[in-house]
């Protein structure tokens, strides 16, 4: 299945992916509506002045967050790891187990994560579409790579 992959050599560290993610998952009319607000993107740029890269859910083959969620709120459907935020109570067990640091609480304290923009207004990963340097891609890669 297609997943989001990053190439840190091309990442500029511009954080645009974070804004595109926050906007895609918002109900705002215009991106400008995010100005001055604390955003809660499902992708985050890590790094320092030497290297930067964006981190989002890996949609693992054997996702430990799904197995660990105490509320049964995380499931894998057609390859996509999804969270039911109505069921989530914000205990953060998924944060404790995810080896990639890919989950974080949203504005209301329940967890959110990348769901590949498949069910929001973008329809496909907005971080990828908006990356100015092609550092984030959405494609099929084999297990061996």
């Amino acid at each position: 299945m297609k997943r989001v992959y990053v190439n840190e050599e091309w990442c500029l560290g511009c954080h645009l992916c974070e804004y595109n993610c926050a906007f895609a998952n918002s109900k705002l009319d215009r991106m400008a509506g995010l100005k001055g607000k604390k955003i809660f993107p499902r992708i985050h740029v890590e790094g320092d002045d030497r290297i930067t890269f964006a981190v989002s859910c890996r949609h693992c083959t054997d996702p430990i967050c799904v197995k660990s969620c105490i509320a049964g709120a995380i499931s894998k459907v057609d390859g996509v790891v999804k969270i039911d935020r109505d069921k989530c109570v914000g205990c953060l067990t998924c944060v404790l187990v995810c080896p990639y640091g890919a989950l974080a609480p949203g504005e209301n304290g329940t967890m959110q994560k990348c769901e590949l923009c498949l069910s929001n207004r973008a329809g496909k990963p907005a971080c990828v579409t908006g990356c100015p340097n092609g550092a984030i891609v959405y494609e099929e890669r084999s297990e061996e790579e």
């Binding site: 992959y5 840190e8 890269f53 890996r58 990639y100 890669r141 790579e145």
Partner: peptide, 10 residues
């Protein structure tokens, strides 16, 4: 290691 984590299927 990062290339494996973020550039491959895990």
């Amino acid at each position: 290691i990062r290339r494996k984590k973020f550039g491959g299927v895990v």
